[in-house]
Design a protein around this nucleic acid. Structure first.
Lengths: 145, 145
DNA sequence: GTAACTGCAAAATATTTGCATCCTT
DNA sequence: AAGGATGCAAATATTTTGCAGTTAC
């Protein structure tokens, strides 16, 4: 991120497009997502933001972002819920049908945006609206080092 | 479940095979899983068991069962963790690579044991150990009614 | 100016830990 | 009898709610 002017514009742009008023916390939290390569859990955000804002604000902001289609929640087998930017979701309409990767070594959760979830044949009577894939394994960084 | 004698045998059998001592709570909780068609969350278990045993026991029993490969945790995008029986996992070695289905209407989570997770081509450097698929949609019961 | 957002306090939930007692083997 | 499992109490951690003050538009 070299051009902070542009970045700020972009931030406000994103928020405004979703009919959200542009506030400090929203800008900061959105920035975290834009700058992060991997998915963020609630705890990460509180810390990374440099203990600037309230835990409650983080909860509410994340919820708002999910509702508005700015970020999506990623399922994991342990308790932790992680969030990552959506590519092109709209309010109430998520279509984040891409694969998620969780590294068992560094614990990073990564969106593989370009790998779309496969079609899966379901038994009679079942209707799928959305397929989420989470792959556990070792990420490229951890395999190398 | 018509033959309760056999069922009891089966329960003890399962537990003993995993080197677990056979206790009331374990038998009861295991029974819940054997009798349930859908996955159970911690809360379900506490209730279904007829408030017989302590919340802490439920936590510990679930954890033990997961470790021993009796049940597996199913990832969901909301906070709730659900558990379902494993088919043939062993201590420390889960291979529950089947598809899970979550009904958006009745909220039931179901193991589709016979539908195995697809192979997915990952980017260079990534190594998969395990692929989990969660499909959201409408289950057969809810489509009919 | 008004509606919406934040931050604090506190309530409600959920999860973990320690320890004495009880049960399984 | 010995080791492990349970249940209670209590410590932690997590999430939600209410409300007064502040900010964006």
């Amino acid at each position: 991120m070299t051009d902070s002017g542009n970045t700020t514009l972009r931030l406000s742009e994103i928020l405004r497009r979703k009919n959200l008023s542009v506030t400090d916390s929203r800008r900061k939290i959105l920035t975290l997502f834009l700058e992060s390569k991997d998915a963020l859990a609630h705890g990460n955000i509180e810390k990374k933001a440099g203990e600037k804002f309230d835990r409650v604000t983080v909860y509410r902001t994340l919820q708002t972002f999910v509702e508005k289609g700015i970020i999506h929640a990623i399922p994991t087998s342990d308790n932790s819920v992680r969030y990552a930017l959506c590519r092109d979701c709209t309010e109430g309409h998520h279509h984040d049908d891409h694969v998620h990767f969780v590294c068992g070594n560094c614990a990073k959760t990564i969106c593989l945006d370009d790998i779309v979830s496969p079609k899966i044949d379901l038994p009679k009577g079942y209707h799928a609206s959305n397929v989420q894939v989470v792959i556990n394994g070792t990420c490229s960084d951890c395999l190398v080092s």
